[in-house]
Amino acid sequence: MASVWLTGLALVLAGPVPALLARARWTRAVPRAAIVLWQAVAVAAVLAAVGSALAAPEALLRVLTHPQDRTGVPLVIAVGVAALLASLIVVRLLGVLVLLAVRTRVRRARHRDMVDLLARAEQNLAVGSLRSGTVLRVLDGAVPFAYCVPGRVGREGRVVVTGATLDTLCPDELSAVIAHEQAHLAARHDLVREGFTALHQAFPVVVRSREARDAVALLLEMLADDAGRRTHGDTAMAGALDAFASSGASVDANDEVLMRRDRIRAHVRGGRALAVGTYLAAVALVVVPTVTIVIPWLGEALPVVGVR
């Protein structure tokens, strides 16, 4: 029975749940809690998939054989198949994660090196008020945009803005943008994104991993926006987003920026109750299946294999 429940749970967590959560609007009011909920969905989905892979052969064995036959060769085969299925999922995910981590770090190191060489030295000093631990780099560029590149562990990340950004934004707006980027770096938002990117690369078709990745990316932007709002005010953060959106030529990427601007202007900020409820849902997603399905199953399955 556990096998059926776990398979069902894995399918629901991989399909309809991410689809609904990606379309939900209330998440914008509580980005931090919503990101935790997304992470819980991902963890629960992977655990359920691994669990169902482990439980399925044993369930088959139980259906196909008499209790006294569940020893010897059939049992060894069942355990072997279970271990193989489960490790396929785990190894695939871990393999993708490691490869992604290595490639990403190589790419970032090269990007940091190039940005350091290309930066306009004289303007780096002009923009003050940087928290220690980050380095601002100003690049030549006619399009205003800003981003950040995490540093190696223990080293400074880079906040990169184009010259056009300095020309376009007023000082308050620029400070808000820098606070936004520093929030990304300080809270290691890159690791959150990396996790969901790995999940998508490991299981691109089966699950709604792309929706998950993109929804989390947008929530991380909103979370960083909130950091800029806290330190420099709603007007400055919304103004900066407005300037970015109106200068860019492309439409689809700008939709997101405009959505973030309007969210700030509408003063969307979630209540405590919504945040607490979301956190509770996240905890429940991981704990409830474990307590109700996995532990009873272990109680039945382990004695069969001879473990007590």
Binding site: P144, F145, L185, T197
Partner: peptide
Amino acid sequence: DALGDVGEDRTAALVAFVDRVGP
């Protein structure tokens, strides 16, 4: 490298943008 940070990439993002220019 920075602007192409959208869509299917072999690496994770450099990191998020305040403004992203489209593909």
